[in-house]
Each structure stands twice: as structure tokens, then as C-alpha cells.
Design a protein around this nucleic acid. Structure first.
Lengths: 111, 111
DNA sequence: CTTGATACCTTGACTCTCTAGGCATTGAAG
DNA sequence: CTTCAATGCCTAGAGAGTCAAGGTATCAAG
């Protein structure tokens, strides 16, 4: 549709990453690819956004990382959700739903 | 539910304002109140966000303003949508829908 | 005459994203 | 063998937008 939207994640990236990790550990590059595929490339995850986000979330205790090996046999930093992170995911999902519902109600009242 | 969400508008405020003006001219303060009421106070419109946004959108030609009188008989700056603004509203609504659908598909796959 | 609501505005801090780089490894293609 | 794309990590700087916290003025109610 229209054009490639140049989307503003701004605040939702954290939730998307947390959700991506909720099925099991992944490394940064894979997280980005997963989100892009899951959204049909509607959401592009720039590395300049992703890695600072991962750092942020690790500092906050939402995720933890260990060096390991990727599917392709390369060195990779595997991130996994902590208990706090799982709680944060629930919180942000609830907030997102509430927010999205509110915005949609205003922008597209008929449906 | 949960708590009052401290929401991140970031990018959606413009669309909400444009939509608010699509039914007719309003002044800033009324726009804020309208959005808050329409979203059941889920979205709080801070004046420090609103007035810079109005200025921005006027500069971009999406809205125009004239000094007039509010319902309560006070001096007020009445904003109205331009043709470009109406087009922008359609664009941003489409983008929002696409974005919100994508995020929701990731965060709440079951529904 | 003081308080609260209406109505406008600005400044500065803050947070997050994006652009645009950099580096190293691997596999495939030439 | 060399080159190129893909994988994988990272950072610095700029830019955009929101928010907190102020300020001003008018008007009605107490």
C-alpha cells in the first residue's frame, strides 16, 4: 500500500523484541530478521536502533546475554528473557493494546 | 487497566489532531480536551506537546489558524484543516492502520 | 480577592530512532 | 584466488518529538 511507511517505532520496539524472545533465546541479527518477517516487512528493524535497545533492556534487567553460536555456526550473542522481562512484556502488551485501541477508535471510528 | 499508561504518542499525535479538526475548526485547548474525551483519558494531550505540534503542522501547511472566539466567549486561535492536511490525514491513517496491524500481529497473535 | 477553569505559549531535558559509518567471518560466485 | 554478499556485532552524531514545568491573561464563582 501507499509507500514504505518509514515507521516510527518509538517505544514499541522494546515490546517487539521482548515478544520475539518469549519463544526462546535469539541473537540480535536474528531478532531483527524475525520481526521483519513476522510483520511482512512493514516494520524494518535498523541495527542502529536494535543494538542500543538490547543494551538498554539488558541494563534494565529485562534480558540477559551469553555468547554462543548461531544457526550458521558463527559467534553470536544470544539474548534470553528474564522473569522481569516477561513481566515487562505483559505490561507493554497491555499498554499497547489499550493505546492502539484508543488511537484506532479516534482515527477509524467506523471500523 | 493496569496503571495510567504514560503513553508514547510519538508520531501519532499529528494524526489525532488532524482527525479532530476534520469535523470542523477548533482551538488548541479544545482539541486536547476532545482527544482525551474520545479516548476515555487513555491518551493525555500535554500542552507542551500540543502547541509545538500545531506550530509544526501549520508550518507544513496541514492546518491554518485565525483568531476568533471560543464557546465560552474567550479569545482563541481556531485551527482548520487545509486540503493538504486532509490528504495528510488520509496518509497517516493508512500508515497507522498498517503499523498497528503489524505490531498487534506480533504482540497478540491469537487476537 | 482568591481559586479554578479556560486559553495561549516557551524552555530545557530526555528518550529514542535513524543515518552512516566501522569491523570480522563465512560461503558462494567469478 | 579474489571478490562480493550475507551474517553478526558495534558506535557516534544528528534529528525528531514528547514531557515537565514553568509563565501570562481572562473570566466566573465563592
Amino acid at each position: 500500500m501507499t509507500t514504505l511507511p518509514k515507521e516510527r517505532l518509538h517505544g514499541t520496539l522494546d515490546a517487539l523484541v521482548l515478544k520475539t524472545l518469549s519463544s526462546g533465546p535469539l541473537h540480535g541479527y536474528a531478532i531483527a530478521r524475525w520481526i521483519e518477517e513476522a510483520t511482512g516487512d512493514v516494520i524494518q528493524v535498523e541495527e542502529g536502533s536494535l543494538y542500543p535497545a538490547l543494551y538498554r533492556m539488558e541494563k534494565r534487567g529485562w534480558i540477559e546475554a551469553d555468547w554462543g553460536t548461531s544457526d550458521t555456526g558463527r559467534k553470536a550473542k544470544l539474548y534470553r528473557l528474564t522473569t522481569i522481562g516477561r513481566k515487562q512484556l505483559r505490561l507493554e502488551t497491555a499498554e499497547w493494546t489499550q493505546f492502539a485501541t484508543a488511537v484506532s477508535r479516534v482515527l477509524t471510528p467506523s471500523g
